[in-house]
């Protein structure tokens, strides 16, 4: 299942970028951008951590 980020509810805390900067970025309002919605297995742990650290619950992902 690809990573989905709900830009409406993103609170721009930046935790996803801090945790998995290869996968997530922020636009010029600090809102989440998913750089790679289908990352390799080696990134899955980081992405799952980003999901749990996202304060708004904007990011969803399951392996």
């Amino acid at each position: 299942m690809p990573i989905f980020a709900n830009r409406e509810i993103c609170a721009s805390a930046g935790q996803c970028v801090r945790t998995a900067g290869e996968i997530f970025d922020q636009d010029n309002e600090g809102v989440v951008i998913v750089l790679n919605p289908t990352p390799e297995k080696e990134f899955h742990d980081k992405v799952l951590t980003a999901v749990s650290l996202c304060p708004s619950g904007a990011i969803t992902f399951s392996e």
Partner: peptide, 9 residues
């Protein structure tokens, strides 16, 4: 969102 760019990573 007026200030989230300045406070982004």
């Amino acid at each position: 969102r007026l200030v989230t760019n300045r406070l982004s990573i």
